[in-house]
Write a protein that binds this DNA or RNA. Structure first.
Lengths: 339, 339
DNA sequence: TGCGGAAGGGCCCTCCTCTCG
DNA sequence: TCGAGAGGAGGGCCCTTCCGC
């Protein structure tokens, strides 16, 4: 457990001053060819690795960015992380990641930790929207910030996914197949993705002249809400839905379970559209028609915005919107009228 | 963009010396009640957050651990990460995570980065086994190390999943249902999980007195290998398999596609067992009988081993083995003889 | 031009001093 | 007079960079 070598050790081994070692390592200033080779040899001999913390203290740059998500077990977030890392590592940045489990206290703590570690910026999926600026840790945080898929009143740049257009396309597709009774299941209206999805649903119905039936809409309020029970309820309506747009993985499997219990088959009795990452539905049979996230695009946009800020770009908030794609499978067909 | 406040600023604001500020913050030494409250107030007023890098430089502890995985988009690894983080954060450690995409060069670079950042330890899923010690970056790395699910010749502690017993249980279950022709699809034999799985398969067959037919075994060599084609081949055998053990998500969906093309139904014509995390197969219909990873257990074991080493435990390598559970669904039944 | 000396960045901790009972 | 509690001064962790030879 001996201490790792420092510049001093390298300088001694190479027979030069520590200043020269630093010059060689950072390729700055004038160094003779001879000194350079001796230093390089000494670095290898001693197994020297420069101490990032000391460097940080001196230069003021930690070369690290924080990523704050609700839960890394969520495949969307995990994939987003992987893609973000790929973008940032070429610029020499490391990524410190942490899950908040949507706990505002944890968000607060984490931002404090990020500030303590003097990270250079933060990319975040905040848990809440509508928190007044004065009590909003994100607004209070002075670090460069990129907020993804949330409307938060703060200085940060923003990346949005175009849930609204995505859902509009999906519902429009079902209308085109002849459906008029289309059930919508989605996440909470408390955050942007849920609100935008509902808007997209309404857009499509309005455009097609289909009347909105509130009984076919279920935007879940908590993780405890049961999509299965809600679907049960809808299927017992006088005019039950002939199509299902289920905008969440857990939501979809719950709703489908209810549908199966009534003996309905996909797509003959019920057309179904889901949402997710590329691999989420590999097992579905028949292949599921899906709204697909463009995760790489979103992550690249976030990383790009961050890198530009870190590079010194100033100016007002910017925002980037990334589309959702409708990928056709075999889970949708024309509606059949039952009695 | 003014510089963040330092202990000096806090000391000035509180009207005490720097040493007293430090004593309050680290609750060490004697501080009067009055001084304490003044310092605490000054910390709030100035928005002071101690500089981790400076602290690290001074104390020699970075309070951070590295995690190296092949690809965070893999749900198993993402869930493992989340669980590891939960264990380490209570002890005040941050986690620096990175994906290597199974590139040994990247592994090497990453270990160098971890050493530069003076991380206190590394938890890793190395890409390769059998690399001689002298050229193995993990053996050469001097940091405390925990290796997960790989047999690597190095000083690190180890966490293993008991693939062998898990697969033995799964195959034995199929044998008990009457199956004798059981197809096995698995990952490469190049790393431990693949080897152990094959051993478990052989264990069960031997125990049940079923002869091993090599034509029913397909351990994929690369991500390009097509499980679909291999399953096709098996289904054209004179005595095709009546059951399928597919030990990978992509593997399973490929093999199932081939089976469906021949008109086989699950479980009447083909019994199926998969492997994965809790949520992986929520959509499968019928519910899939699954070998389930105990990810939390594995992550806790890895974190625990690491924390003990960081706490100063010395001594020889230790290893922990975590079981896989067989979770019954409705995808298995008695075999039907076709002609 | 090429090199070395030295300062300084934020923090912790080891001394040391001072005060009061 | 002495000892215990409280706080101040300063060195050094490792690195970069400004100066000056």
């Amino acid at each position: 457990m001996s201490k790792p070598p420092s510049v001093r050790d390298v300088a001694a081994a190479a027979g030069v001053s520590i200043a020269s070692v630093s010059r060689v390592l950072n390729r700055s200033g004038y160094v003779s060819e001879q000194a350079r080779t001796r230093v390089e040899q000494a670095v290898r001999d001693t197994g020297y690795a420069p101490n990032f913390s000391a460097k940080h203290l001196r230069t003021g740059r930690s070369k690290a960015v924080g990523l704050m998500v609700s839960n890394m077990a969520n495949p969307f977030l995990a994939t987003f992380f992987a893609a973000t890392e790929r973008c940032l590592q070429d610029a020499g940045f490391s990524l410190l990641v942490s899950s908040t489990y949507d706990d505002p206290n944890r968000e607060q703590e984490l931002l404090t930790l990020f500030e303590s570690r003097r990270l250079e910026g933060v990319i975040a999926f905040p848990a809440q929207e509508g928190v007044p600026r004065s009590r909003n840790p994100f607004a209070l945080c002075k670090l460069p910030l990129v907020v993804v898929d949330r409307e938060v009143d703060c200085h940060g740049d923003a990346v949005f996914q175009d849930h609204r257009t995505g859902v509009r396309l999906a519902v429009d597709y079902l209308c085109a197949l002849g459906h008029r009774r289309i059930a919508l299941f989605g996440p909470s209206l408390g955050i942007r993705p849920g609100r935008e999805k509902l808007l997209g649903y309404k857009d499509a119905l309005a455009q097609r002249g289909v009347e909105l039936d509130e009984r076919l809409v279920c935007m879940l309020k908590s993780a405890v809400d049961s999509p299965e029970e809600q679907m049960d309820r809808m299927l017992r309506l006088h005019e039950p839905p002939t199509a299902l747009v289920a905008l969440g993985t857990r939501i979809l499997s719950g709703a489908l379970r209810a549908a199966r219990r009534t003996g309905r088959r996909v797509p003959s009795d019920l057309s179904v559209i889901g949402i997710g990452t590329e691999n989420a539905f590999a097992l579905a049979d028949p292949a599921l028609t899906t709204l697909r996230f463009n995760i790489d695009q979103a992550a690249q946009a976030a990383a790009q915005l961050m890198l530009e800020r870190l590079g010194g770009t100033s100016g007002p908030r910017r925002s980037v919107t990334v589309p959702l794609d409708l990928v056709l499978g075999e889970s949708c067909g024309a509606p059949v009228h039952r009695r």
